[in-house]
């Protein structure tokens, strides 16, 4: 059953009582919360996702709940519980949904060493995938959101999940996390897309989530072959450029920014070696989203750059 098959009222009742079993890519999460903003954003942004039953196996059992005690009246807060344990300090209640998103990332990144998990966005077309690493502030999420609204399938905007063994990318297809200016840029670029509530004053400034396309959610069991690793960088008024990048340096960057490279030890090295060896690595500078989309639609399949 899809999330959208439940009325918002029914959804929020379930979420509050026994919790929902939400499937996102290869993971099923048992989520409970009585916080209205969590229910509202979940039912809006995950409406195409599958709900499983309580008879299924859940990878993670999580709960978001308000802090108790006097403070709840003058400074309401949200807590995250992972199967009865509380690994993080509470956040202001207004950040409840962003907290849900990053704690789910935390669950995945910390309990899934059967995968190599890179801190990167990933998108796919015709079975071939682009991995977009890059530090925050480089326009990675904006580019990922833009491409996913122009024919590319969203695999993930934050966690590129590679299956050890065949090194296929597994889709997560969860809402895209947009920050500050990107929020308005994407509202204009994709007027049809659905956006969640904007949370102000988080550690990262303003945060809002964009709903992934129905197609990428429906196809979230369909793996993709990593083919390009591209470090994007938005530079205003700069000419578009795609330049080859050192493979060894790409290796080190991806390893240092991976969530679990060092936890995998030798397996991590071997996986990364295979990944880097089989991908074309580029630096990419852009100042215009439409031009960037055009460039992505003609990415070279051999190590040469067409002018």
């Amino acid at each position: 059953m899809k999330v959208s098959e439940l009325s918002p009222a029914e959804f929020s009742k379930r979420l509050k009582r026994r919790g929902i079993y939400l499937k996102t890519g290869p993971f099923i999460s048992h989520i409970r919360s009585s916080i209205p903003a969590v229910a509202r954003n979940l039912s809006l942004l995950y409406s195409d996702h599958q709900l499983m039953t309580s008879e299924d196996f859940a990878d993670f059992h999580i709960e978001l709940f308000r802090s108790r005690g006097l403070r709840r009246w003058y400074r309401p807060q949200v807590n995250f519980s992972f199967d009865g344990h509380i690994p993080f300090k509470p956040l202001p209640l207004a950040q409840a949904f962003p907290m849900f998103e990053w704690t789910l990332n935390w669950c995945i990144a910390n309990h899934s060493n059967q995968y190599l998990i890179l801190h990167a966005a990933a998108i796919e077309k015709d079975g071939l995938a682009v991995i977009l690493p890059a530090p925050p502030g480089t326009g990675k999420s904006t580019l990922c959101a833009g491409l996913s609204s122009r024919g590319w399938r969203l695999l993930s905007d934050e966690l590129a999940i590679l299956r050890l063994g065949d090194m296929k990318l597994l889709p997560l297809a969860r809402p895209i996390n947009l920050k500050n200016d990107s929020i308005d840029i994407m509202r204009q670029y994709t007027p049809d897309a659905t956006f969640g509530q904007t949370s102000h004053d988080t550690a990262k400034g303003d945060v809002a989530h964009m709903k992934p396309s129905t197609d990428s959610v429906i196809r979230s069991d369909e793996t993709a072959t990593p083919t390009w690793i591209i470090f994007p960088k938005y530079v205003a008024n700069e000419n578009i450029s795609l330049t080859l990048r050192s493979k060894a340096q790409t290796f080190i960057y991806a390893a240092e920014n991976a969530f679990n490279y060092s936890a995998l030890g030798l397996k991590g090295f071997q996986a990364m070696e295979h990944l880097i060896d089989s991908c074309h690595c580029y630096d990419f500078i852009y100042s215009d989203l439409d031009q960037a989309v055009e460039q992505f639609n003609s990415l070279p399949l051999s190590e040469e750059i067409t002018p």
């Binding site: 990878d59 309990h111 060493n113 060092s262 030890g265 030798l266």
Partner: peptide, 19 residues
């Protein structure tokens, strides 16, 4: 398979800890 995923994840961590 769902359980194997978690067991192998733990094993990979244990192997790394041995090193």
């Amino acid at each position: 398979e769902q359980a194997i995923n978690h067991l192998s994840s733990a094993q990979i961590l244990a192997d790394r800890q041995v090193d």
